[in-house]
Structure formats: structure tokens, C-alpha cells
Amino acid sequence: MGELKTILSIKRIRYGITTLMILAIISILTILITPFKYDRITYNVHLPPLSSSDNIWPHIFGTDSLGRDVFTRTFYAFMLDISCGLAIVGISGSIGLVIGLIAGYLGGAVDAVLMRLMDIVISIPGFILAIAIAAVLGASLVNAIIAVAIVTIPIYARLVRSIVLSVKESLFILAAKEAGISGVRIIFKHIMPHIIPMFITQATLELSNAILYIAALSFIGLGVQEPTPEWGLMMSIGRRYIMEAWWPAVFPGIVMFLTVLAFNLIGDGLRDYLDPKKRFSIVKLI
């Protein structure tokens, strides 16, 4: 618990968590009590921010090209995008973890094969590969998540493997092996504790990356479908009208920016705390 306190004492982490909490609370409240339906089309097209509506609430962020309330849609999208981010990090993180552990611990041919496989995934620039996979699977939210998850697996696999390699030869693990403790036990008891901190840090940073990815895929039309509110999709439609009405594109962009910023702040703070020497300053793959 003391550790948690120290972590929370890092300003960046505190700011990040506060921002996220505020956004999450607004989002939950919006979903619960908004008088506007996110897909209700009206004739009140492109009302500017803070325009009054027939309801008690004004259109805080204005309305979009189909007369829908941008505030409601933006905060519905918050939940969707965060869930997408979590799903992506969950899938690619756990697969990457397993691959990294196996490759690092077993070494030899298994390691070579798995890592070459990862190299191949990395050899094609991430966004292009994600586009290709999403296009093959067909445009939908689930497929976009799968595409991004596949592309980001090597990040975790490489990270985990390098940590495993660095602790595998340490005395206590050699001793544990000597004592005949099973591999699985060694991994869970002795290696995992070394992996978890860096893994969580990387996952936090990747969460922001995943959100940007999903938004970019939806932006070019390979992700979430109308009328589901999603930031990338909202921006891609909103920007077509940007010279007439800036709000349907800019507000989702700002909220998305704040969310990504919050995750970056937390991840950055965690990294400074857990790995002050930055041995594993892994570059985000754009």
C-alpha cells in the first residue's frame, strides 16, 4: 500500500488519473441522464455550442450535420473508445506476454521461431498492416480491434522476452532450477514479479496508442459504423463540414486528446517510477 501511495504522489500520475476520473464521471452521467438520444436525427443541424434545445439541457457542444447532440455522442464515445482500448491491450498484451515468456524462458529454436514471427509482423509498418487486416476481415468494431491487437502483439512479446532474458541467468533462478522446481512455478513465482511493473507501464502507454489506432481506422472507414458514436468516425464526418461548423469535429478531438493525454501521463509517470534508468524505453510503434 505504501507503494501505491508513492505512485500516487507522482504529480503526472495524479493529474492523469484525475482527468480520467472526471471524464468517466461525465460520461456515466451523460449516458444515464442525457435527454438526447445519440442517434436521434433532427432538423436542428449544426447548432453552435451552448444553443438551447427543447429540453432543459442546452446542446453543450452543439449539434452535428444530422442535428444530433455532439456532447452526448462524444461522451458515449468515451466509453466505447476506452473499452476498445482496453480490449486491444488485453488481447495483444496477454498474447504478447505468453509469447514473450515462452520465447524467453525456453530459448533455442522455439525462441528463434517465435521472434522471427514477431519480426515479420513488425517488418510491415503497423498502420498499413492494420488497414490490410481490417480490410480483409471487413469493416466492423470487432475486426478493427482484432487488427490493432495483432499489430501490437510484438511490442509486448519483445518487452517480456527481454526482461525474461535479463533475469533468467540470475542466481536465484538458477538455484530454483537446481532445486527441481517446475518451470511454470519458476515463471509465476520468480520471473513474473519482474515483468509486471514494466508490462503495466507499457500497457498504459499502449492504451493511448490503441485509442489513436481505433480512431484512425474508423476515420478512414474501416472501424466503427454509424450511428454508433466513436471519436474517429465523428471527426471524419465532422471535418467535412469544418469550415461551416467546427464543433462536431473539434470537441470529440479534444476529449480524445484529453483521454490519450491522461494515459500518457500515467504511463510516463509509472515508467519514471518503476524504471528510472529507462532500460526499456520501448519506442511506441506508430
Partner: peptide
């Protein structure tokens, strides 16, 4: 076309028909 489809989706929802829009690339 994306927005036209969204309007149609909503219009049909109002009479009770549920529609799911799938925007594909041209060849797909």
C-alpha cells in the same frame, strides 16, 4: 452516402425496422 444511410437507418427505426449499417470499401 454514409450520412444518407444514417438518416435511412433512423427513419426505418422509427417505424420499427432495425437496420445495421456496414460501410465497406468499394471492392468488398
Amino acid at each position: 452516402r454514409k450520412e444518407v444511410a444514417t438518416v435511412i437507418q433512423r427513419n426505418l427505426k422509427e417505424i420499427g425496422i432495425d437496420v445495421k449499417i456496414v460501410d465497406l470499401e468499394w471492392p468488398s
